[in-house]
Amino acid sequence: MTAKTAADSVRPAAEPADEAIRVVDLHKSFGNLEVLKGVSLTASKGDVVTLIGGSGSGKSTCLRCINFLENPTSGRIVIGGEEIAIRADGTPASRKQIERIRSRLGMVFQAFNLWTHRTLLENVTEVPIHVLGVPKDEAHDRAMALLERVGLAGKADTYPSFLSGGQQQRAAIARALAIDPSVMLFDEPTSALDPELVGEVLSVIRDLAAEGRTMLLVTHEMKFAREVSNHVIYLSEGRIEEEGPPEQVFGTPQSDRLKQFLKSVA
């Protein structure tokens, strides 16, 4: 992770080779409801960019537009320098391209979304073997190492429904890591967990941040966000109300809405 210094608050445009993700003027409407009203953000390799904001402010939608789980109404998405081609109706123009890009974005969902008919090990090897074409032995060994790393080596042959939420979410993180993602997308990874299970998941994410994984993180854990992020974006009603390095956003918030929000979650 890059050092967090005051200089970070003036973010120079990322060198193209360094850029992991760029979102330009993203708009998204559901029917008449405009949920995103022009959101732009960039993350360089190794950055942890955190989105915060009230419920319904558009955080999940923003994340889901990046891998086209939702089709943006307009805007540009550039992943690792490659722009996703979009048709006039907002759908991805090339199925091949979007599938290739998706298979490099490791998404972790609020509700884990593990495949319940597969063991943890099978969950972790599924995408490498069946999407990326990694040889079985290699995928298997790598999956075991990842499960070990998130503390679940002993549960490799267990089905997700028999595990706690914290264990399932750690397995879901291992599943995302198995594709060696260029960017990880976390959508409130601890919001569905009992309070005593939040810590084990945050500590896995903290390690990933420390080893320089590029991440886009939506969270309500403000202390954690302040600790791991390089850059924090406060979304309000589909717009970026305020952004900057964590010390600035959390320490000296400028806008009234952000001040209000931080008070409400404190």
Binding site: F109, L114, W115
Partner: peptide
Amino acid sequence: PIGQLEAARAFGMPPLKMLRR
């Protein structure tokens, strides 16, 4: 559960493979 299908989509699984797997 819709999330299981979304997870497959989010990881770039092609439609026919998703049907089968």
